[in-house]
Nucleic acid binder design. Structure first.
Lengths: 160, 160
DNA sequence: TATTGTTATACTCTATAACTATA
DNA sequence: TATAGTTATAGAGTATAACAATA
């Protein structure tokens, strides 16, 4: 349990971190905005999967994921093949063109970070990654549908 | 200088941290979305200031800041008084109603984090804050060319 | 001429709800 | 009935550019 001032500071930091994200988005190819890049990156890391699984990894709604997927599929970066186990689903898989785009993204990202984070050690970047992953995990427990046990969810309702 | 894999992992983490920000935004009052909350919080922390200064602290364009400010001013949370030193500018200042809203925001934020981050120590949250501040600072050097002018902007670091 | 701030416009990302096809 | 996915719609956040007032 941390002090209130640390919580409020964290809220501020998260609010302001958007500037870093936008800085990163600015170096992407115009054809491949951040949402598309995230789809490609996750498919490379985790291998072929369904939309629902991808939505889970992206931590956004499936409807949003569906649009991102349609965008990258239109450009030939992924292919959607039938899922023999469930005709409602399709399996998403990277194409060679998609892999080429990913390689390009990796080059741009690395160049950007190598310039802006040149005074960070390898270990420091690793620590930040670890903490961010833990932060996401802690929050995931709050939003995730594994509602086990009694209803403990706080009343976040607000009158429209 | 860190390894490329750490850079790509950081890009992924930043992409996914949006889910945490949205979780935080969900608990805000409908009248006070994230942009408004950021304006109020910065005015409380740094005291009265002009739009241009606020835009710098928010790390967004002045046009965006102008809209956020108009929103909070309409609701009476801040007041805009003439700047005697420059008639083009106005000085932004919190009102008592604005302070009341800030107090409410603080309560909601603390309750949220106390629930989701209950297994984080005070020190761990502080470390994350420090790293995020440093990350923003490293990126700020990239986008905002060192304007070490007469206004000597204090380091983006937080005054503890 | 340059700067401060405002407004109009457009784009990205997101969630909710309605819909279809299948389980 | 329930689930996987798509699409329509709405809303927040942002940037660029054109503009007004002042420096």
């Amino acid at each position: 349990m941390a002090a209130q001032s640390h919580y409020e500071e964290l809220a501020r930091q998260l609010s302001a971190i958007g500037a870093v994200k936008r800085g990163l988005a600015r170096i992407l190819p115009p054809e491949c905005p951040a949402g598309s890049a995230a789809v490609l990156t996750l498919l490379e890391r985790h291998g072929e999967m369904r939309i629902s699984r991808l939505a889970e990894l992206l931590a956004v709604d499936m409807s949003v994921t569906s649009r991102h997927v349609a965008h990258v599929a239109q450009r030939g970066w992924i292919e959607r093949s039938a899922d023999p186990a469930d005709k409602r689903s399709r399996i998403l898989r990277l194409t060679p063109e998609g892999q080429t785009m990913i390689d390009d993204l990796g080059l741009r990202t690395t160049e950007m970070f190598a310039h802006t984070l040149k005074d960070w050690t390898d270990d420091e970047v690793g620590q930040l990654n670890t903490m961010l992953a833990r932060l996401r995990d802690s929050f995931g427990d709050c939003r995730a549908p594994h509602v086990r046990g009694p209803e403990t969810r706080p009343p976040t309702r607000t009158p429209a």
